[in-house]
Design a protein around this nucleic acid. Structure first.
Lengths: 174, 174
DNA sequence: CCGCTAAGGCATCATACGATTACCTAAACA
DNA sequence: TGTTTAGGTAATCGTATGATGCCTTAGCGG
């Protein structure tokens, strides 16, 4: 997940994944069959973790925070899982691929369905939540936090996008 | 722009670009020096076109529509330029790259500065506009319109994200 | 002690791709 | 007419990469 998040699907090599995992390159290929299957496994796992975290946020009715805010927190907390959100994002821009494409669309719609059916969002509310999420993914992908101290407008934008979580985001982003 | 939009920076080959342009592969390399420089030229051109269109929307004070809506229309109309928004999006997720990264961050902040300084948006308004734009990019990247007729929830989401422009988007997406 | 299986590495292969080199051709033109 | 020059192409090269085949080691039941 870390490697695919950093370099994308095509830009990552099985040798990089192997190095990160501390095994040999051929072993990675043999464990997953192909690089494509490895990437599919990665985004499946990423989605499982994301939805699990979302469901815990829905179930946490003891919290004083409203649901939207709990879900937002759960989303930003995925940054602790390095590469999780970015691996998904890389899949989302490869919709033309005959294998990655359907998987990406299916995963995205799984999240939308969760927001509508399990979180009780309306269509507009769910759409807005997804939009904020995609902006977060983009800014993380851009490594925008690198410029937080250097560019006051970057700082303004980041503080607006992460009103309460900016410190967490900065400490997690790399 | 079309090729990079479809396959991403790493996933595109200079041979594909050459075929799309009707020239030979070595000629593409010689015209731009390297594939990296070609991609930088592509995203520079994409940003120029986007900002030019935005400035026209700001200048069009005769319109009855509010500015936000005019800018939204201008954004969706970039879909006529095949690969424009997606080439940018591919650059945005490669922020770790030592060359693409700074270019992507600079381009993104150019748009943010436009919204703040020239369009007169506040920080929150600009952030919301960018968020909607990134959701649009994601759904176009996912080729979500392919499922418009097949999946009623896809249809609901798309109609919510493009309340007035859904027909245009469907006719342009491929 | 033997044989089986799980876990994993080493060497290597075929291919795709970006880049380079050398070459070609049709105008422009002095 | 000879020569430069713009605008290309074909052939090729070096390398990176995903994939494959074979070997080694260790545990473990009989």
């Amino acid at each position: 997940m870390q490697v695919f998040g950093d370099y994308g699907y095509v830009g990552s090599t099985t040798a990089q994944v192997a190095r990160a995992a501390g095994v040999s390159q051929p072993y990675v290929v043999r464990m997953f069959g192909t690089k494509e299957q490895l990437f599919l496994d990665v985004i499946t796992r990423a989605l499982e973790r994301l939805l699990t975290s979302f469901r815990q946020a829905v179930a946490d009715t003891a919290s004083a925070e409203p649901l939207t805010q709990r879900l937002g927190s759960a989303y930003v907390n995925q940054l602790r899982d390095r590469g999780l959100l970015l691996s998904l994002m890389h899949a989302f821009v490869l919709g033309k691929d005959p294998v990655i494409g359907p998987a990406g669309r299916g995963g995205f719609m799984q999240v939308y369905r969760f927001l509508r059916d399990e979180a009780g969002f309306g269509a507009a509310e769910a759409q807005g939540f997804l939009a904020e999420g995609m902006l977060i993914n983009t800014m993380i992908g851009l490594r925008m936090t690198d410029e937080f101290d250097g560019d006051p407008e970057v700082r303004e934008l980041l503080e607006c996008a992460f009103p309460t979580k900016i410190d967490l985001v900065r400490s997690l982003a790399q």
